[in-house]
Design a protein around this nucleic acid. Structure first.
Lengths: 356, 356
DNA sequence: TTGTACGCGTTATCAA
DNA sequence: TTGATAACGCGTACAA
């Protein structure tokens, strides 16, 4: 019965003394129905608590009215916020959202293929599924939007700007006089790759070279581990780095924890920066200097782009890159040009207001 | 075409020179098929890149192989973590997850009814949908698990313990010598009601009475607003409260912000506590004393309970209440019995390790 | 071991 | 204005 109300359109038709075609027309207003007949139908519908079976509708209409989203993980604020923006718009557009988290799951390919069978289009976070599988799905004609990654042929891309803001971050740190840098966060070949690239370019332009990124996970624990490895006396390089640039805020929080463990003061002994501007970044002490991503907007944009592709409003793939904001707080060091007593004056590029 | 590969089971049957019944049997192993025939079928399947239409399968099988989750919001770590635990288990059980966030949406009832047509069962967070609608859905025979709320007849309940831990929290604060308490967070008639109830009981047992909870939203901004209202000189009561117990961590972070705004030191001038133990709670300064909820476990338990109901393993509704942990950190005041130089010794009931 | 035919619940076309 | 009927794509008794 696929748990509906049990009542089918046939039951309604019988009860109203009409044909199923008339019931359908009366209900969706797709064709002429006399007032009298409509009355009878609606009455029968009410009495039987009839709700059209979603399965039947989808089969006949040839669409699911549902979108998918494939993300690597739901822990941490970043993906949840993107999903939030996505669901909000998708729902507004009359589409349900099916989520698939691939975190450490096997059979991801099969799960994604199954998902593809349930939706009219899907958003795929970069680095969650093999490119080959994404291409395969695109090949079936299904609209796909790739999120926070490099473009894939035939799919839309929605990402936030990485290289420029990474440069700006690095330049800001150079302005503090730092010359020994460490990077924390596994190079994922996607978003983070671009960040490291931007950082390296900016540093190189000033004759500074950073060590290879420490390949940790994007979690607080991963950051803590990285922090120990990077900051422990004589661990990786001769001299302890003066600044640790982290691939995301969670790593940065972990690095700060590690610094505490080692008796180092942030930012006095070592500067630490993050990326994303999650809630904890603002409330941590020292508050995190970071790069704010428009997380909800990413999801919302992806939802709209996907809708265009599905409805056929647009047929050629497009790419949109959303701007980010450097948020300077305390963790990168004192900003002498302003009195340290006024906390809000620690912000340079952006006031420390909550994200819109 | 509902965007599959386009190839239907008929095409496969024709190509393999067999009937669709044989194709179906060969593919799902539900009946005898000769090795030779199977070969032919698989060959045709591969050549045509055939994937059974999910719609057809669902229609024929009479099930969606999908579960729903209705939550009020996806912002903030709490709901995302619960969803994570839910999706993880559901996926493991071969079920997709459709999410519906009701945050400030109209037509919630219709959206929930639509969701009901897409799934074999659903988890509903308390206070997201009118009880009448939930009952209506239960009335259709659909398995429902209510999350973090009061029980509803005919539905399972999964919640975390509130009253006892609220008592413990209040008692701990009383132990600090505080006698003037304020509560921040709108009484929602569900989870939070229970917390306020527990707090009040414990305080009353010591002859202390708390003011009415300040009815703010469960966000940092809401907490900040509440903090100002509560802590501003001469605002609500004659004497400023010595402790502000907040309905969740985000509110608590906001209250701390407000205290800073007003030039008050936490915990010296005022103690602040939260609830949930989100990531930011641990990294805030002062670190938040809070009550840790097993967020992922809540989602995971709900998924398993729902599965039991769907598969019929269990037919009578059940309720499970998961234990919580009081996590004592710095925001509730100094703990003189231990040297303040050892940060980890600030924990009484629970070491400040990351949640499992 | 294989094939036929029906059921699942709609929408939509076409004839009346 | 209405009704019969053909899709839509599959699973599966039942017959062969």
């Amino acid at each position: 019965m696929v748990k509906d109300d049990g009542a089918t359109i046939y039951a309604v038709a019988q009860r109203a003394g009409v044909s199923i075609a008339t019931v359908s027309r009366a209900l969706r207003g797709t064709g002429p129905v006399s007032a009298t007949t409509r009355e009878k139908v609606l009455k029968a519908v009410a009495e039987l608590r009839f709700t059209p079976s979603r399965l039947g509708v989808s089969l006949a209409e040839g669409r699911h009215a549902a979108n998918g989203m494939v993300l690597p993980d739901l822990s941490g604020p970043y993906f949840a916020e993107v999903l939030l923006g996505y669901e909000e718009v998708a729902s507004e557009l009359g589409r349900s959202v099916i989520v698939l988290s691939t975190r450490g799951r096997e059979m991801v390919n099969d799960l994604v293929r199954d998902l593809a069978g349930r939706v009219d289009g899907m958003v795929v976070f970069g680095r969650t599924v093999e490119d080959a599988v994404v291409r395969e799905i695109i090949g079936t004609g299904m609209p796909v939007v790739v999120l926070a990654s490099d473009a894939i042929d035939g799919a839309d891309l929605v990402a936030s700007e990485n290289v420029e803001s990474a440069r700006a971050l690095a330049v800001h740190l150079l302005g503090h006089g730092h010359t020994r840098f460490a990077l924390a966060g596994r190079d994922d070949g996607g978003d983070v790759s671009q960040r490291w690239q931007g950082v390296r370019q900016a540093l190189a332009a000033h004759g500074v070279e950073a060590a290879e990124p420490y390949p940790c996970e994007y979690t607080v624990e991963g950051g803590q581990e990285a922090g120990h490895a990077i900051l422990r006396p004589g661990s990786r390089s001769a001299a302890r780095p003066q600044a640790v640039i982290c691939a995301d805020d969670q790593i940065a929080l972990g690095v700060i924890l590690a610094a505490e463990d080692l008796g180092l003061a942030v930012p006095h002994d070592v500067a630490v920066t993050g990326w994303d501007d999650i809630m904890a970044a603002r409330h941590a002490r020292p508050a995190l200097t970071t790069v704010r991503q428009p997380m909800r907007a990413l999801g919302a944009r992806a939802a709209r782009a996907l809708d265009e592709l599905i409805t056929g409003t647009r047929t050629t793939p497009a790419a949109q890159v959303l701007p980010t904001t450097l948020v300077v707080r305390a963790s990168c060091g004192p900003h002498p040009q302003t009195p340290p007593t006024a906390p809000s004056s620690q912000e340079e590029m952006c006031r420390d207001t909550p994200p819109a």
